[in-house]
């Protein structure tokens, strides 16, 4: 067990911090400040009649304000038994000096009414790491807050931060872009293809023994057994054999929706690629397309498809 893990176990074992009472009871002026700033026009927070109609039996506070009531304020200090503060100190000491929040999951058991006075407790759920992240090596620290009115639990929050050691190159934006695309693995059997796309050639493997055309390629001809692959340069034209309009989830380096087409080339082999230059709803099986070479960077050029000019699309 590392020292960070030991400390995390110790802090987690201490359990919940003592309840900390909010500075103010739930009150209309703070709600009004909040709805004004956020731009929330929901009348149940400000109009007693609307609140009544919605079944609240009086004005209520916006659920998303729950954390606001117990914020430390301008000169606030963490209480000595606050597990998040303790864990941050441990990680600071271990060299993980930067912090960024990653998740906030709030559950509201009921709406709060004016005059109710909440208190909050915090406990450490878990500390996971060290993980390599885009920001640098770090630990994910998850805490759980529970809000009470008296003994009643009214809301809970699972809150996660990444406490990290900033990477050598700060804010590695330049690195983020190439990492955003999924790159092909290239080996002896496939490098001719990617060398071709870089030159603006769509290459199809051709067996040096029997002439079989094959894509995706491989080292041994399944027809004649020869291990003499060569290639020809395709005319780069064909038809959509099938296609997908991708909506979810998000794909690195692409905005959704986008179209991926399985194209049957005139030479007879099929090949996948993104299809651009046409609305997704206008794509159909049989659409005539041609290849376009899209340069990602100096090391990678992707073959993509577009509708063929004069192809009757």
């Amino acid at each position: 067990m590392t020292r960070v893990e030991e400390e995390a176990a110790r802090i987690a074992a201490a359990g919940e911090s003592a309840p900390r009472l909010a500075r103010d009871p739930v009150n209309l002026p703070m709600v009004l400040n909040w709805v004004e700033a956020i731009g929330d026009a929901n009348p149940v927070y400000t109009d007693p009649e609307a609140a009544e109609k919605a079944g609240h039996g009086g004005l209520v506070a916006p659920p998303a304000m729950i954390q606001v009531w117990t914020m430390g304020g301008l000169h606030g200090q963490r209480s000595s038994d606050d597990p998040l503060g303790a864990m941050m100190a441990v990680l600071d000491e271990a060299g993980y000096t930067s912090v960024v929040a990653t998740n906030s999951d709030q559950t509201y058991h009921r709406y709060l009414r004016q005059g109710e006075h909440v208190a909050v407790t915090t406990r450490l759920d878990d500390v996971v790491g060290p993980k390599r992240t885009a920001l640098g090596e770090g630990w994910f620290v998850t805490t759980r807050n529970t809000w009470y009115v008296g003994d009643e639990v009214v809301a809970e929050m699972r809150f996660r931060v990444l406490k990290f050691r900033p990477a050598e190159k700060p804010a590695a934006v330049a690195e983020a872009v190439p990492a955003a695309v999924i790159r092909p693995a290239v080996n002896h059997d496939t490098e001719y293809f990617w060398q071709g796309t870089a030159l603006g050639e769509l290459r199809i493997q051709r067996c040096g023994g029997c002439g079989l055309l094959r894509h995706p390629p491989g080292p041994m001809c399944p027809e004649c057994g020869a291990t003499k692959p060569t290639h020809l340069v395709s005319d780069g034209v064909g038809e959509v054999y099938s296609y997908v309009v991708h909506h979810h989830p998000r794909v690195p380096g692409r905005a959704t929706p986008f179209v991926v087409a399985l194209v049957e080339l005139d030479e007879g082999v099929r090949m996948l690629g993104e299809l651009t230059g046409i609305a997704p709803d206008d794509v159909r099986v049989g659409l005539p397309v041609e290849v376009v070479f899209t340069k990602v960077d100096d090391d990678l050029t992707m073959p993509t498809w577009r509708p063929r000019a004069g192809g009757g699309s």
Partner: peptide, 9 residues
Amino acid sequence: SWSYPMGLG
């Protein structure tokens, strides 16, 4: 490598 980089992932 014939599918994922093309957006089919």
